[in-house]
Nucleic acid binder design. Structure first.
Lengths: 359, 359
DNA sequence: CCGGCGCATGTTAGCGGTAACAATTTCATG
DNA sequence: CATGAAATTGTTACCGCTAACATGCGCCGG
């Protein structure tokens, strides 16, 4: 019996223990053709030695990292966490590892991050949103990597797309509030240009307002992304001072809507009687809040799962030397009317339309 | 001028372009001593060719992956997201890349995940919680990797620790509710053994109840982790049916507390007048809800930052061939009394004690 | 009984970097 | 101007694995 090794066992050690060549071990571990008894001996040696393959060595030799990189704006307090969970699940199933980075809504950081991630030679990339700096776009197109963009429907996508129209999301909620009779509908969003998806939802609001003959737009911007409940509360307070006659608010996200409702409650403003409020994203808090928050629901986890599956297909094709033509999946939006925009009595007549699919 | 390369440029290409040897390029890129003019030529060549170092090759040659692996239960709707953000920031500063995995509270998945992550030869590991299967502990101790455990204070830690006593957290909230005169204090948590930290908080509740002469414990368990608001609402509904005389509830997390408060509101039960409710974690929702939720605050992001810094130190030492003696950082807990346990009038006399640090 | 085809396994040559040591140049000093 | 030390750069040998090709062996039909 050989003495236990000080260093971590390598494939050579396994090969020696099983009485075969290194190459046969490599084949056995990756599922290639190996005679059953040989494979059994190898597997026994692997578990006896506690062998763990060295991913970097494999990546170097095979020119396949097994990594997929994903770049999201943020992971806290947002639906992106669910998208990442979906991604992780889909990629794991395809045998790919997820390398994650957060930009905190800074495009400088996005560039830097991409550079860092590229060192690991990912075989594919998931991006959030369709707006990227020129340099990012250049880096990606030069790398010829499979790319999937999510949470948006870019006009000229770099690769595949799994997203929805943020403009439509803003439009749908605005239309809903107009349909229930509101006339002074405001929009509450972030102050900066750093969140293109939030901007788009605001644009959908403005268009719908104009189309409904309900002008002028009352757009109030407050706070830097990542926007959270606090920004909703603060923003609502200021919005009320500026436009006290407001009777409905379209919020850029459910978190903002929640903060806004809280502010109304503290001020004794009845929601939805005096002011109706709608959000975006169908966060869990919207289902559980009292009143429950009307929202435009989007399947965040599903976006991740589909993007992961799409990218896994593209990576598999790329390994075969093929290039798939980019797919484009538009996921549905669903208006979910709840207590923050409809009276309980009203709700009975307008039951929550979970299946009302939009655009 | 050489023709543009089809393949990605390597260090050899840069060396040729700059008229030096590969080794000099390697040194220049890693900040070793290189004459200023030479370094300038190399950097110029790097950016002209768009060279990106190949991490796997470097890892293989140097036996340093530059990775740190972190294993967390979940990323959605929990404070772990903030811990991960803190970790990421601290590690990035130390030039380490974060490799992330989620267990979804399954220890089988934790094992499998660890195995997968080990293929990348991380130089250190961050674990959540101090309870691990025998196999996980064995795998880690055999690997001799620097380890930091977080969100708990294990009795016999594997390596470093950045955590707090979950038992104390449960105790503190229970004591608070007892101190404001509540006598029938219940505990609302998860149904399974999969969340050891939630269990511990329940234990702190029971001990404090016994110590205060307020028996018997009213422990209601509902739902599998990851526990969310919905579980709080459902659990509260059943708890009220079983123990209608309850006048206070210690919840295993703020999310559960939020759901529970919502259920009370829907039933017309006044919070805090009829039932006082407390949570754990100081999630943002607790600050913004109406009433605001009393909670035991813990600095989730700070835990991540400290754990990252601690691990970075251990990795640096390990690279020098040293082994640091394990550190143990106990982060403070802070009782934050808010409207879900105190009347507004009462709150004036008991101002929110942000700085009240607990053991 | 033999050539040849397939299956199972082995051999060779890197993948793209870095450690360790060797070689060369530079420069201050006696 | 000789000389040794310091500063700078180059050379060699891998790191642990896999692609591509080579080899050996059993079994088939003719």
């Amino acid at each position: 019996m050989a003495p236990p090794l000080r260093r971590a066992p390598t494939m050579d050690d396994v090969a020696a223990a099983a009485g075969v060549s290194k190459m046969t071990v490599s084949r056995a571990l990756r599922g290639a053709v190996v005679a059953a008894p040989t494979r059994a001996r190898i597997m026994e040696a692997v578990s006896r030695l506690g062998y763990v393959p060295h991913a970097a060595a494999g990546a170097l030799a095979s020119r396949r990292s097994g990594f997929v990189a994903a770049i999201v704006p943020s992971m806290d307090n947002s639906n992106f966490a669910e998208t990442v969970a979906g991604l992780e699940a889909a990629l794991r199933q395809a045998g790919l590892d997820l390398l994650l980075g957060t930009t905190l809504y800074s495009s400088a950081r996005e560039e830097e991050l991409l550079q860092t991630l590229m060192r690991h030679r990912p075989e594919g990339i998931v991006l959030t949103g369709g707006a990227h700096s020129r340099r990012v776009a250049a880096l990606l197109s030069r790398s010829a990597l499979p790319v999937v963009e999510t949470w948006d429907l870019p006009a000229s996508p770099i690769g595949g797309v799994v997203g929805f129209s943020n403009r439509a999301a803003g439009a749908v909620m605005t239309a809903h509030l107009a349909a229930i009779g509101r006339r002074r509908i405001a929009f509450l969003g972030g102050a900066s240009r750093r969140d293109p998806r939030g901007e788009e939802r605001g644009r959908g609001y403005e268009e719908t307002l104009a189309a409904s003959g309900l002008g002028p737009p009352l757009v109030f911007r407050h706070g830097q992304p990542p926007l959270s409940m606090r920004h909703g509360a603060e923003g609502m307070a200021r919005l009320l001072e500026r436009w006290p006659e407001t009777d409905a608010v379209v919020c850029a996200s459910d978190l903002i809507a929640f903060g806004a409702i809280g502010e109304c409650q503290r001020r004794g403003i009845a929601v939805p009687e005096r002011i109706a409020i709608g959000g975006f994203g169908d966060f869990e808090v919207s289902r559980c809040a009292v009143p429950a928050i009307s929202t435009v629901a989007v399947d965040a986890r599903g976006i991740g799962e589909r993007a992961g599956a799409m990218l896994a297909r593209a990576v598999a094709a790329s390994r075969r030397g093929e290039i798939l033509s980019p797919e484009r999946i538009e996921v549905g939006l669903r208006l979910v009317a709840r207590g923050s925009s409809l009276h309980p009595a009203h709700l009975e007549h307008h039951p929550i339309r979970w299946n009302h699919l939009i655009g």
